[in-house]
Simulated assay, not measured.
Amino acid sequence: MILGSRSCLSVGTGRLLQGLLPHLRELAIGRVDTSGPVVLIEARSEVAEFGCTACGGMSDRVHSRYVRRLADAAIAGREVQVLLTVRRFRCLEPTCLQATFVEQVPGVAGRYQRRTRPLRGVLEKTAVMLGGRPGARLVERLAMSASRSSIEVPPREWTPS
């Protein structure tokens, strides 16, 4: 195989990224765009059905899809964004008060969060060691984006890992 051919890069890219980013191993890696200053990784879940967050009933009826843009830890000095396509399911239980719910991919990011767990861990450790402005300067040089106010994590939110 020729190393520069598209088929060679697309076949091994998913496995390579899953090795570099083990928190994405439960996801199907689609396209990886390295042409710009930010590495864009398109990913989606391959789980056929998901449990309702209110009643726990399983559902395979997809209501809609949308893309979550998650900041991730840097790769080779480049900022990484994960474009995670998540599905909104219909709850099949007639007594459930929640009509639709969104799948949550464990190990990637929590609900409503815009950073992956590995990036959040780096930012929390930076906050403990350096604090606001110095921490923000360090993570900027490490090709991860965070403001000084997001580096200042209150002690009640920080949990040692």
Rank of each mutant, 00 (worst) to 15 (best):
I2D: 13
S5F: 01
R6G: 00
C8A: 02
G14V: 06
Q18L: 01
G19M: 06
H23F: 14
L24T: 06
T34E: 15
S35Q: 04
G36C: 02
P37H: 14
L40V: 10
E42L: 09
E42Y: 14
S45I: 01
E46F: 02
V47I: 07
G51S: 15
C52H: 12
T53N: 08
A54M: 13
M58F: 10
S59P: 08
Y66I: 03
Y66L: 12
V67H: 06
A71D: 15
D72A: 01
D72M: 00
A73C: 07
A74M: 11
G77M: 12
V82H: 05
L83E: 14
T85R: 09
C91V: 11
P94Q: 12
T95N: 02
C96L: 09
C96S: 10
Q98M: 15
A99Q: 13
P106A: 15
V108P: 00
A109I: 05
Y112V: 09
Y112P: 04
R117D: 11
V122I: 11
T126K: 05
V128H: 05
L130M: 01
G131A: 02
G132N: 09
P134F: 00
P134R: 01
G135E: 01
E140Q: 15
E140A: 15
E140S: 14
R141E: 15
L142I: 13
A143K: 09
S150P: 03
R156D: 05
E157D: 12
W158E: 04
W158D: 03
T159H: 13
